[in-house]
Design a protein around this nucleic acid. Structure first.
Lengths: 216, 216
DNA sequence: GCTTGCCCCTGACGAAAGTCGGGGTGTCGG
DNA sequence: CCGACACCCCGACTTTCGTCAGGGGCAAGC
């Protein structure tokens, strides 16, 4: 098969040549361009259409995150790997949200770099160990709690569902009553029943359940 | 370096030998054991301590998900890759939650299999393209709302933070008062101030903010 | 056709939440 | 030194919640 074409972007020459050297050890990878800032990286991606773009976050002009977002728009076929020193949570969220397929720490084993390039070139996601933990944990937490909560919510009647959805959005009983065209007393009774079924002691706990199931 | 030792578990012989054949093309990978069901897979992992365990989800005795969970406990050094036909959301959540580091679809390019083994052996996470989308999307959504909420929470004082955390967990003012060793009136005043700063009309809305920031 | 059970509705009443005004303390700039 | 300010604390008052004890409709089973 044809080699994987890669663009490398980092403001330090040393780092760029280091990455080049590492990637050179793999026959299937070819570095086709280098950029010292984010703006130039985007331009070169437009020109070369590489399979993979390796972007440092800390770069002048346009940082790696902003560059990743632009690349996702102007060259969606190019997979972006974001490279950084720290696995800061906000960075990870923004990188992945912005369309990056990989997130690699500079402290990683050089071989990970090669693996990551192969992975994202194939369309998969690759996350450095330290980063992977957080993403997976969060994914699991959200998924697990949602599943748990969903089971309890299934016991509710249709009307109670309606009430819970509004309750979970932070509405008062009076507001819910108006929305459902009943008097407040009715809503209170429904809420009472909901609390009972969800095993909640007050509406805040019920709201959390609603929130977890995506009702709110 | 020493080759990556791999265990392959699938109830069909054909699939196992197929995987073997694919992995054989990589010099750094060595299949050290095969299992036809989950129970046996766990036993063999205990015995061989391979670097990577490749588990099909659909297996007799113990399915791949349950096996992955057991392996995470009895042999945490072994990285698990879950292999399946469909990227069903519940499967992904359970697999990753159960400690799997990789999730691969059988429809994938065979080369992904090799890349995935390398990736998880290095401690990273590897997700098949289709699966990666979902995980990343969810991660981003959660992260985005958390970031938004976090900004508002920064305006709170230390004490208000404490109160919000307990409030978000569904505790009553009386309970919060007891926990913080103040009288209820004080807590109410704090809550009032929190509602003001968070632009919330009642404690449920405040709780949602707390929940989004991970305070609760 | 009657009972039993479930759902949706309602009003009254005690309990919790939220508002308001205010007191004490520490810190910072005039 | 002394406002001005921010934080934490408190109690009295009003509003909202949550519980309790029902009534009416509707469908399933005897």
């Amino acid at each position: 098969m044809p080699p994987i074409q890669v663009l490398v972007a980092d403001d330090e020459v040393m780092v760029r040549s280091g990455i080049r050297a590492i990637l050179a050890t793999d026959d299937d990878i070819e570095v086709v361009a280098e950029a010292a800032d984010g703006r130039r990286a985007v331009e070169l991606v437009r020109a070369h259409r590489p399979h993979v773009a390796l972007l440092d976050i800390r770069m002048p002009e346009l940082d790696g995150l902003a560059a990743a977002e632009e690349i996702a728009v102007v060259a969606p076929a190019t997979s972006v790997v974001v490279l950084t020193t720290f696995g800061e949570d906000d960075y990870v969220a923004r990188a992945l949200g912005g369309g990056a397929a990989g997130f690699l720490l500079k402290a990683s084993d050089p071989r990970e770099l090669i693996t990551a390039v192969h992975a994202v070139a194939a369309g998969a996601a690759f996350l450095s160990p330290a980063v992977a933990h957080r993403v997976v944990r969060r994914y699991r937490d959200v998924g697990a709690s949602a599943t748990r909560a969903r089971r309890r919510v299934e016991a509710l009647t249709d009307r109670e569902h309606d009430v819970l959805a509004l309750l979970g959005a932070g509405h008062s009983n009076a507001e819910i009553a108006k929305a459902l065209h009943v008097v407040e007393g009715t809503v209170k009774a429904h809420v009472s029943s909901i609390l009972d079924k969800l095993d909640a002691r007050n509406r805040v706990q019920a709201a959390i359940v609603a929130y977890e199931t995506g009702l709110a």
